[in-house]
Computed example of a mutant assay.
Amino acid sequence: MRRKLKLLFLAIIAVFLVVHILKEPKTTIPKSIQDEVEIALGHFSELEGIPIAFKFKKNIKKSVMQAQPTWSGLLKPRSKRSYVILISEKFKISGAEFKTVDVPRDVLIGWIGHELGHVMDYQERGNLNLIGFGIRYVLLKEFVKKAERAADSFAVSRGMSEYILKTKRFILNHSEIDDVYKARIKQYYLSPDEIMEMVEHQDSIRDNNLL
């Protein structure tokens, strides 16, 4: 009897995996943030055709948004991967609660752009490397810093510097946001000054190429 139950259990898992692997993923966007997502996606031509599902979640620990590869995507070639970007319905810091959709429009676009920067980073990694990425992100603070700064850099290099700057300033200059959270942003992410330096460097390279 136990053997039959075990085989049945394994069969159910196998069917579940097959269904999810064969199911054709697609990009889905909640109507309330469709305009902002489309503006952000417009800066990432490399992600055209890559399925990304944007989903609201009641709460995300230590974050407002989170980009992840789907489990089925990890079993496919990177050209066939799909992703999900989870968006917290609300975020509460030091007693101040905000609905994510109610933050200034450009701030929201910047937040989404940062997460798309993560997707760009993921797309450059092989499957085993991506699994290792997840493990290191959980265990190593220095790796968190490297990953978050890389996501910022991808967004800035795709012309989203103004949006990313507005997101940083919204957090760092908001009087009701806890200093501990602000310190985390300063520790792990690009600073406004570093972003401006990146933009100036990009402009310099572009100007030299025009000569």
Rank of each mutant, 00 (worst) to 15 (best):
F143Y: 15
R184A: 05
G42W: 07
S157V: 00
Y163K: 14
I177P: 12
G110L: 07
K168D: 06
A96K: 14
L10D: 03
W111V: 15
Y83N: 04
D102E: 12
Y122R: 02
D152W: 02
M65N: 08
S82D: 12
I87S: 00
L41M: 15
L8C: 04
V64K: 05
V84C: 03
K166S: 13
E162G: 12
L41N: 05
A147M: 06
S157H: 07
K26D: 00
K92F: 00
L165F: 08
L17N: 10
G134D: 14
E124G: 14
P51G: 13
K31S: 04
M65A: 13
E89I: 08
K145Y: 02
L7K: 15
L74I: 02
H43L: 01
I52A: 04
R169T: 01
F56T: 00
I50A: 10
V156Q: 01
K6Q: 11
K168C: 02
F91W: 05
L211A: 08
L75A: 15
V19I: 12
D152K: 03
F143Q: 13
R105K: 14
I13L: 05
D152N: 10
K4P: 00
V15T: 12
E162C: 07
E176Q: 14
S32N: 08
V64A: 06
E148Y: 10
I164A: 05
R125F: 01
K90Y: 14
L75F: 15
V37Y: 07
I21C: 10
H20V: 03
E48M: 04
E48Q: 14
S191K: 09
H20C: 11
I29N: 06
Q66C: 09
L128Q: 11
V19N: 11
N209C: 02
T70L: 06
T167S: 04
I21T: 08
G95I: 04
S45K: 13
V37L: 09
Q66W: 13
R158K: 13
S79Y: 15
I135D: 01
K62S: 08
R3V: 09
L116N: 03
D207T: 02
G110C: 06
P51V: 08
K80F: 07
I29K: 06
I109G: 04
T100Q: 07
K62R: 13
R206Q: 02
I112Y: 00
V64G: 07
L10K: 09
F170T: 03
N59R: 12
L210Y: 11
M160P: 10
K31Y: 03
E142H: 14
K57R: 13
I177Q: 09
E38I: 04
I131E: 01
P104W: 15
F143D: 12
K146H: 12
I29V: 13
K57E: 08
M1L: 14
L86S: 11
L8E: 03
I60R: 04
K23M: 06
L8A: 09
I171T: 06
K58H: 08
P104S: 12
K80I: 00
V119I: 12
